[in-house]
């Protein structure tokens, strides 16, 4: 799974919505195999593009309020936030090139 920083229901406002940077939240859970598979790929993308995009993760079991607010019904779900708004949603574990293509506008 991803080594990204955890955000929670309590910190979501300050760390994600109020962030001045473009930030992607990986909605995940312990029991989700595909989440564990995609985690290391997100770590690589974060490391290679740290200037452009921060990636954090939110455990949907521990933080149901935020998961419900953003209508999560399938994980892994990756949502990109800019200025407090969702500007991109990617659902499902995908190979690195496919994720990079989905996120191209935020990585370039």
């Amino acid at each position: 799974m991803s080594t990204a920083k955890d955000v929670t229901d309590a910190t979501f406002q300050t760390e994600v919505l109020d962030s001045e940077k473009t930030i992607m939240v990986d909605f995940w859970a312990e029991w989700c195999g595909p989440c564990r598979a995609v985690g290391p790929i997100l770590d690589q993308i974060a490391a290679e593009h740290s200037e452009k995009l921060s990636i954090v993760k939110l455990n949907v079991d521990d933080n149901p309020e935020t998961a419900m607010k953003y209508g999560i019904t399938s994980i892994p779900a990756m949502k990109v936030y800019r200025g407090g708004e969702v500007v991109k949603t990617v659902i499902g574990a995908k190979p690195k090139p496919a994720l990079e293509a989905d996120l191209a506008e935020f990585l370039a």
Partner: peptide, 17 residues
């Protein structure tokens, strides 16, 4: 609607229902 209620993986997505 895949990922928005349509799923192929109950173990991944069941808990949201």
């Amino acid at each position: 609607l895949s990922g928005y209620g349509v799923s192929w993986c109950a173990t991944c997505d069941g808990a949201f229902f």
